[in-house]
Design a protein around this nucleic acid. Structure first.
Lengths: 232, 232
DNA sequence: GCAGATTATGTCAGCAACTGACATTCGGCA
DNA sequence: TGCCGAATGTCAGTTGCTGACATAATCTGC
């Protein structure tokens, strides 16, 4: 049922319990909806796929679809959402003596790598996530929804960072600023990925991310010309 | 007609020419639409304002509205868009021997200050822009649209930075990374503004932006604890 | 197993954002 | 004045999304 291997442990209520038939069925249709939507989106594009199509592909009413997902965007981003949750989980388990930026960087790399190793195919797999990213980038409303999600995620990062270092984010701006910077560098790497059409799988993405983070210092340095552009 | 004083000089075609009646009328209705929309949004909220209302307030058909603005979001963000254009203009006129990050920082401060000094009220003024920002933050679809606009703006910043320093952004990642970081810090400051309800005008916002940029170095430093949190 | 409370789902009606097609009117220009 | 093209209006239609209510499925206590 869970999409990828290191699943985010779900809600606290599911302690060992078998969730019961009703709950199982719900997960089932939800999963089916994501899967169907995903396939339709990739085959005929996001905008050209109607909610009715998705619903009838799973043989439920349109109304039911909207009880599972608030809007069409949400079902498209569901897969990415799980990956993001896993990243947060990784961050929470980082050693506290690690430097904050380092912890973030290590977490994102670990998240990509784990998800990459999890399973080779299927909806919710890394490959789908990568395909999805391309799709997001040229579906305006989808991109918009995704960016909103990202900023919500950033707020969580702020909280986790603040807890980690034991300080109040309303007084100390460093968690906020660091989370913002981290998010933006990551997004730059993602954009670079979709633009350059680098064919490599997760490892290629990880390499791209690392390269971008490596430029963080140089980019913030005073004058670029004197610092030497270091041609690749 | 133009909303604020240091107007972004428009398109290259308007060299001294009086644009003719037709063109003038177009600008007029466009401006009227922005104004009406703005008032309606602030008085009754973005979601509760229909496009029909805006259109009939200016006495044009709904169809005409959609010929001026691609969607409801766009009319709301029109004011901010002009401000952003002006920022780019400021950046372009920055001395080339200035450090890149410094140029960005100085440009944004100058933009806010100039716009603040331009005019005290009226649609398209700074105060409206500030009100708008609050509105954006709690209208989900608006926020999404705004974030998309911001990333487009970031691409322009990348180009300008690359030109300034005379390098190819596809080879050297520094422009991309710096633009991303700059944008994110700015957005963090904006968020802080809307959250804390700081009542000050443009100068308050400028101060907030400066404070956030001042934390850029500390946030990226290795270990926060050893570095000393410096309580305000 | 069964009655009754919950809960998921279906159906239907409706609003609002948008779009394409076509007719009309208005400004620009000879 | 009279023609051309651009701006606008009208209309019909699609799609995303929501509220209200009825139905059917699950769950709970007996």
């Amino acid at each position: 049922m869970a999409a990828h291997a290191p699943r985010p442990t779900g809600t606290p209520e599911d302690l060992g319990r078998t969730p019961g038939l009703r709950e199982r069925k719900k997960q089932q249709t939800r999963y089916a909806l994501v899967q169907a939507a995903h396939m339709l989106f990739l085959s005929q594009g996001f905008a050209r796929t109607t909610v009715d199509e998705i619903a009838s592909a799973v043989d439920v009413s349109q109304r039911t679809f909207f009880r599972y997902f608030a809007n069409k965007d949400e079902v498209a981003l569901a897969v990415m959402a799980e990956a993001e949750d896993y990243f947060i989980e990784c961050l929470r388990h980082r050693p506290v003596d690690e430097a904050p930026l380092q912890a973030l960087r290590a977490s994102i790399v670990k998240a990509w790598r784990d998800l990459g190793n999890a399973e080779a195919s299927g909806p919710g797999s890394i490959t789908s996530a990568l395909e999805l990213m391309r799709m997001i980038e040229d579906a305006p409303t989808l991109l918009a929804a995704h960016l909103r999600r990202v900023t919500e995620q950033e707020r969580i990062v702020v909280r986790v960072l603040a807890e980690r270092e034991g300080l109040d984010p309303r007084e100390d701006l460093r968690p906020t600023v660091l989370a913002a910077v981290f998010g933006s560098v990551l997004r730059a790497a993602h954009l670079s990925w979709t633009a350059d059409r680098e064919p490599d799988g997760p490892e290629g993405m990880i390499a791209l991310i690392e390269r971008h983070f490596d430029q963080l210092g140089p980019a913030l340095a005073g004058h670029w010309r004197t610092a030497g552009p270091q041609p690749e």
